[in-house]
Design a protein around this nucleic acid. Structure first.
Lengths: 341, 341
DNA sequence: TATGTCAAGTTAAACGTTTAACTAAATATA
DNA sequence: TATATTTAGTTAAACGTTTAACTTGACATA
């Protein structure tokens, strides 16, 4: 059987309190006594029982990360950054995939909140947070949202500079002489609409009339459920190319890129000669296509790190009863120009 | 303050034991009594304190997943499958990235073992497991290895059919008339050597002499530390192409693919006309390069699911004292032929 | 000398559950 | 009828830590 603090105390000839104080450094102890304790610890190969400690202290050092689509590399990279950051604060992420399914998300959040996590980071499936607000009323667990906006900002949120990113992308197309530019988003959500807003802004600024037919959204599924190569995005692209005189396409994220670009390839349409192409979300793969694809790079790892920081800081602030107003943080994007435009 | 089981018991007019029995269904209770309990639970909005339960039951329902390179999509996909599977068993994964650093891996494993996880899944950085065996002697936590082999198999292991996969790839090149075929692995480890073994097997079978100069390995870093486009793999490829009459390249995984293919692109070498190309690890991106790349597809999600299953089954077996011999599971690969060969 | 302060350690309660062992009543068995 | 069994519930210990409150003795202060 594993030794407990009691055995250590006995062997060292002190009380369990003293052992605890030595181990945690929470109170002054004579060096000599400390040595006795440490000797006993070594001799017994004592290891603290973290279950008991967590129970006693009422904390778990765990952060739930509930992500709408873990099969999407964008969110995988957020997880990467989050893990990195939490590590530094002594926390660990529990990974959960809600597969773009509100019900799964709800069940998991409920379950997690009941599992005594110390904080929660959510990349939500939709912008409807009413259920969450309800749940969170009973638990005072800090929550940080990533990638999608909550209505009202009464939580911390981490987002990309979507409007600016979209604006830059479309502006660069306009500068190259394009006027008939389509925007294809993976689905209709606040993030895609922001990127669409950037698209509109660039057009407006250039005095180009906005054609609502040029703005398209795909359906609602996660990468793993989705037929990336021949799904709704693919069809939208075909429809656009066949029926409208567009000369450039701006896709709203990596998912949209795959379907759209695949159509162009299959149809034998030359990029950028016939149609110029630029996308949101960068990846090293984009330099291996022909032509290599221009992109508005996001920084998912950085977003994950920021989310981790926010949630940890809020935990600390709560413990110490420090005021800590909610923040909405925008992570800048970066235009990466390659051959496709 | 959150209500405890005691308040529920008082309100329902029963003992805490009864409440526990009702909530867990661990003992027969009259329907009437059960109703009283449930009413009290509803009225107080009681939620069990999982910290207390975990402590009492000595389990955490958590599985540590320590992965050598979380920035590599292959491992991200393993994480995806693992999460899926654990879910079904009522467990959750804690995600940890060891960044191909043995020290980080050791620290994390130690820390996790001290954190009362119920099981451990490791995609290890090296094949040196002596430290692990030592650590695990004190904890009886089930461990499952993925992607890299432990010497001796005294644990569960999940691997791809690497030899067979490599064999199929090279065989398909030979069938297309190639004889001067290079193998480029990302680094020297058991997995890469197995794929190299498949390469040798195919050559031997075809009576083609093996030229050791045609077998190359890159360095040792994780994706995020690595210069994928212009790293050691890139240099190996250049050296091979310039100095040897090779007509085909087989790369050992996605990392090797990026460096090698990027060299071919930059050097303007036509694929497959000048050099045929096939790789281990599939991805939808491979159909978007020009030419689209043939690959030996692994099934990382499936590997993650199997790892999850193994670890959960072993936990159950241990609890019930059931004999459960260690398993080495090989997941079949699949040859996906595209334009590059 | 009387009093106060400080350091170093101890005592014991508390955290919220689960569960083995027990009780009491009801029912079955011979 | 006497005895055994079953059912439905209770009692209280146990899990391993942390920590507030207390004790004791040494030293400082007036």
């Amino acid at each position: 059987m594993k030794p407990s603090i009691v055995e250590v105390a006995q062997l060292a000839g002190v009380s369990t309190a003293t052992v605890s104080y030595v181990l945690n450094g929470t109170k002054r102890v004579r060096p000599e006594t400390a040595r006795k304790v440490m000797d006993a610890v070594d001799k017994l190969q004592y290891q603290i029982n973290p279950l008991a400690r967590n129970f006693r202290k009422g904390e778990s050092k765990l952060i739930g990360f509930v992500v709408c689509d873990l099969s999407n590399s964008f969110f995988q990279d957020i997880a990467l950054g989050l893990e990195q950051c939490l590590n530094q604060y002594g926390y660990r992420p529990i990974l959960i995939d809600s597969k773009e399914d509100k019900q799964i998300e709800m069940d998991n959040v409920r379950n997690l909140l009941g599992s005594s996590i110390d904080g929660l980071v959510i990349a939500p499936t939709t912008e409807d947070f009413t259920y969450l607000k309800l749940m969170l009323r009973n638990h005072n667990v800090p929550v940080v949202y990533v990638d999608r906006k909550t209505s009202g900002y009464e939580s911390d949120v981490v987002l990309s500079e979507n409007v600016e990113g979209g604006y830059q992308a479309v502006k660069s197309l306009i500068e190259r002489g394009h006027r008939e530019i389509a925007f294809i988003g993976s689905r209709r959500d606040s993030t895609m609409e922001e990127r669409g807003e950037g698209y509109r802004k660039a057009l407006r600024e250039a005095g180009i009339p906005i054609n609502e037919n040029y703005i398209r959204y795909g359906d609602n599924m996660s990468v793993s459920q989705r037929n990336l190569l021949h799904g709704t995005i693919y069809n939208h692209t075909r429809e656009l190319v066949k029926n409208y005189p567009i000369t450039a396409i701006f896709t709203g994220n990596n998912l949209a890129t795959v379907g759209a670009f695949n159509y162009l390839m299959e149809a034998g349409i030359k990029v950028p000669e016939h149609i110029a192409f630029i996308t949101f979300d960068d990846s090293f793969w984009l330099s291996m296509t022909t032509p290599s694809l221009s992109a508005v790079a996001q920084h998912p790892e950085e977003m994950g790190r920021i989310a981790g920081k926010l949630v940890c800081e809020r935990i600390l602030a709560t413990q110490r009863n420090i005021e800590n107003p909610h923040q909405l943080i925008r992570v800048p994007t970066k235009l990466v120009l390659r051959r496709s435009c």
